[in-house]
């Protein structure tokens, strides 16, 4: 089947094979001789790397942080996108098409570049924003605490992706039959009532998918927290699962543990994406 061969060739070589190789590597551990020289021995450890990953507070903690992050980020992201969409769709907005374009624009910016821009905008002395926030809150500027670093990262990702959700929700709203909205208005429902009691329930499928996709996206966080960690001491080197994997492989040079962690991560994110696609009902 020459039409399918190219895809399955690259899929096999660059997805299946690496996962299989990682599964193989995850069964071994490099143990250096006690003196630290004379080379390391590779020892078969079975599922030992998996038990050490699954009992590693840093690894579990990275999912814990993403969990806390999502508790703050998801309601804000989805809530903001819904409010913006309902305002755009209220019939009171001017230039809705143009506004959607502008809101979507940050979505094409690379996450790393967005993080660089916001890194400067979080830097006292450079950023006009810091003075405003200090003035409003009356407190000094610091990104040292966990809540502050969560807000700092969430702001970057909301800036990047809120427009995407607006476009998706707006498209879902256009699918509501005109007669339904007319009927609600004839029954005397005002704008706000129509939005809350008719429009929102009618796009709850789209909202559910967006929530799941946003969670899946949040679990993959890497570039933004990695870059912001230089200015936000609240972000440690194992803040997200991918940062943990990176730390294990490139700082600790523990490839067995890194491979095991990457596989556990792949399974967790695969299951979460599966949930999201089930919601989409292919």
């Amino acid at each position: 089947m020459p039409f399918l061969a190219p895809f399955f060739l690259v899929f096999g070589v660059f997805t299946i094979l690496p996962l299989g190789y990682a599964a193989y590597l995850s069964l071994f551990s490099e143990q250096s001789s006690g003196l630290g020289f004379g080379g390391a021995r590779t020892v078969f450890v079975g599922l030992g790397n998996f038990t050490s990953v699954l009992s590693d507070a840093d690894f579990l903690g990275s999912f814990g942080i993403i969990g806390i992050y999502c508790l703050f980020y998801i309601p804000l992201m989805i809530g903001a996108a819904l409010v913006i969409t309902l305002l755009l769709d209220s019939g009171l907005a001017v230039g809705g098409r143009f506004l959607q374009l502008v809101y979507y624009l940050p979505n094409v910016v690379p996450g790393l570049i967005a993080a660089i821009i916001w890194l400067y905008l979080y830097t006292p002395g450079i950023s006009p924003l810091v003075d405003v926030v200090e003035g409003l809150s009356g407190a000094g500027w610091s990104l040292a605490s966990l809540p502050a670093s969560i807000v700092a990262v969430a702001n970057v990702t909301i800036w990047l992706h809120v427009g995407y959700n607006v476009v998706i929700f707006f498209a879902a709203l256009q699918a509501i039959p005109r007669e339904t909205l007319e009927a609600a208005r004839v029954d005397g429902a005002g704008q706000v009532r129509v939005a809350l009691s008719v429009k929102l329930p009618m796009i709850r499928g789209a909202i559910g998918i967006a929530v799941l996709m946003t969670i899946v996206g949040a679990m993959q966080l890497f570039a933004e927290p990695m870059l912001l960690s230089s200015r936000a001491p609240g972000i440690d080197s194992t803040w997200t699962p991918n940062m943990y994997v990176y730390q294990k492989a490139f700082t600790d040079h523990d490839f067995g543990v890194a491979a095991a962690a990457a596989l556990v991560f792949a399974v967790v994110i695969g299951a979460a994406s599966w949930g999201a696609t089930r919601a989409r009902r292919w």
């Binding site: 089947m1 660059f14 690496p18 990682a22 993959q220 991918n242 492989a249 994110i269 695969g270 599966w274």
Partner: peptide
């Protein structure tokens, strides 16, 4: 039209579930 088409397509859909962020380190190791 070919035999087992939808099964083969199922493999593609499984591939959708595993994002590049999860295969990057295995790719590096290989």
């Amino acid at each position: 039209d070919f035999r087992g088409k939808e099964k083969v397509f199922g493999f593609v859909l499984i591939g959708v579930l595993v994002p590049g962020a999860a295969t990057a380190l295995p790719l590096y190791l290989l």
